[in-house]
Amino acid sequence: MSAQQLDLTSQAYESAASDAMASIQEKIQACMQCGTCSGSCPNASAMDYTPRQLWRLAQLGQKDEIFNSKTFYLCSACYFCTLRCPRGLPLTETIGALKRIAAAEGIEMYKSSIQFYKSFMDTVRRYGRVREMEFMNRYFLAMKNPFLPFKFASLGLKLMGKGKVSLEMPKFFGKGRLDAMFRKVEELEAKR
């Protein structure tokens, strides 16, 4: 496939944040601020901006406001807002797009989530599958916080008691199972 063809299909390649933000703005242009999303969100009470307010900020392109709030990372992807939106907007998937911008820009408040996802994807790239304990160890090492493992200790011990997880230290060098696919995705996204 030629590069020229690829340039025409940049919609899905969202590595450049400004284009990505513009694409979000366009996607939710039809939002009429009815508030069905806020009424449907199980985590709205823990948010600073409600989902309805978040989409208004997105319509206005208020990127700083959005990424200084904790609304988007409190989404647990239950898809109730998507199901009920009278405009049929893909709201939950658009939260995913916001998370990608936050990851690409390394937003400080979102740091631990970014590292969580990154550690996860590192084990997928390396082994093709997720090894739960290896991935958690990777995450703990990357976060450089000696107290973090204790937050997960209670469940971890229960699981270990059931023989469901084994202590496994991550391997950081050598060839990964899905390197070729990951590299190709990176190449296509850089080309956009």
Partner: peptide, 16 residues
């Protein structure tokens, strides 16, 4: 088979 991407891939790259 390999990993479906879970929720981590979506938060990293749409195409991935």
């Amino acid at each position: 088979w390999t990993c479906c991407g879970a929720s981590a891939a979506e938060a990293t790259s749409y195409l991935l």
